[in-house]
Design a protein around this nucleic acid. Structure first.
Lengths: 125, 125
DNA sequence: CTGTATCCGATAAGATACTG
DNA sequence: CAGTATCTTATCGGATACAG
């Protein structure tokens, strides 16, 4: 995906916030579209690229590959390549990923019970 | 701030995800830059527009006003206008806001102890 | 099957100027 | 003091084509 431009207030402020508190880095990661859904889908047992893609319905190859890469880089999932033909790759949650998933469940419960958003859902039939 | 274009896969997918789980709406809200810092700064006792602006250092008027409006719309903070001259507005966390803040503390602790990011901080002197 | 490369539209953040 | 209006630029998500 696109590189970041190192000279810009935009970049500088992001760096400033991430320096200030790692929470900002974590939220930045999780806020990437489909990220939490990918995490939950792996937790639910979808351990292949294609099964994830089917489970998530509207995600593109490009984005799914990117999200898997980011999750792996952060040690939230483990990736196993099996040297067979056709190629086969399996994904699973790490202990760290499972811990994060639990924290997100808490947040999810808060969101479901305490918030009344409905900003973007009016379009869905 | 900018309006959303109702016809686009981009919009549709966001709506799809928010429909699927309110967590996606919450994270979308929290991921707006400075959002969590504004919340924490109000919690820390900065209850005026200017004191928030000073505390957060690099935030612009535009963005601070927008974040305060969003937090108020979601019932996470309360806003009080005092009809004096010069105008005086005070902000405080709601019970819901305090609850969210606690959940974020848990996430923050996870981020500080379990993650090793350091993606964007190399520029900061 | 599991991805990668390139291009483009949509959105968010920030700069600047201004106001009751 | 506490914002609002307008414009610009950076970044992200998605479409399409392609590859080992």
């Amino acid at each position: 995906m696109a590189e970041r431009k190192l000279s810009s207030t935009n970049y500088y402020n992001q760096a400033f916030l991430e320096e200030k508190c790692a929470l900002n880095e974590l939220i930045y990661l999780l806020s990437k579209r489909w990220m939490t859904e990918v995490l939950f889908s792996i937790e639910a047992g979808n351990n292949r690229f294609t099964s994830l893609k089917d489970d998530l319905e509207h995600i593109s190859d490009h984005i799914l590959a990117d999200r898997l890469k980011l999750l792996e880089q952060q040690g939230l999932i483990h990736k196993t390549h099996l040297p067979v033909n056709p190629p086969r790759t399996e994904y699973e949650l790490s202990a760290k990923g499972a811990e994060l998933s639990d924290l997100l469940d808490g947040l999810c419960n808060f969101a479901e019970t305490q918030m009344q958003f409905q900003q973007f859902t009016t379009l869905i039939k």
